[in-house]
């Protein structure tokens, strides 16, 4: 990821001003080359929950701008009565801008009462979080949310 335009280069300088070492981190990631892409994240979701999920029923709550990518609070809430007949069986969370796309997978039961989970996620850069919920009737639902990260949370 060489600086391709003056705009990006300038932005990088600004990031450097905002937090010492951030530029170093970015170049470190650039040198590593490997990283999750939206395609990789999608492919991983297919292995976790096969099928075509529909948009909706999930709310992802996360800050719009995270100053520190080391621990970004992310809440995933799925609309469901959580009864024996109709409940969420699994929630999968991936992110498309980290070295690896996987974040976490949760298995829920009717005992959960409410399908809402909070975690803290490392984010290397500004990226999208995608959640997929699997219901007891087999249907899949998905939602996406972008989080802007000022200082990446990885390495250092």
């Amino acid at each position: 990821m060489e600086p391709t335009s003056p705009v990006i280069a300038r932005r990088r300088v600004l990031v450097g001003v905002a937090g010492a070492g951030a530029v170093g981190l970015l170049t470190q990631f650039a040198a590593r080359g490997a990283g999750a892409t939206p395609e990789a994240a999608k492919a991983l979701l297919q292995t976790l929950a096969k099928g075509e999920p529909k948009e909706g029923r999930i709310a992802i709550r996360a800050p719009e701008i995270a100053e520190n990518g080391n621990a970004v609070p992310v809440t995933v809430a799925v609309e469901s009565p959580m009864t024996d007949k109709d409940h969420v069986t699994a929630i999968h969370v991936v992110a498309d801008g980290n070295p690896n796309p996987g974040v976490a997978s949760f298995t829920l039961t009717p005992l959960s009462g409410k399908a809402e989970v909070q975690i803290r996620v490392r984010m290397a850069s500004t990226q999208k979080i995608v959640a997929v919920a699997q219901m007891s009737d087999g249907s899949l639902w998905t939602a996406t949310r972008e989080v802007k990260v000022t200082i990446g949370g990885c390495g250092g």
């Binding site: 996987g102 974040v103 005992l111 975690i119 996620v121 490392r122 984010m123």
Partner: peptide
């Protein structure tokens, strides 16, 4: 009785 399980990846803080 099982209530909840989480599988975590290195992306967790």
């Amino acid at each position: 009785k099982p209530v909840f399980q989480a599988k975590l990846e290195p992306a967790i803080s």
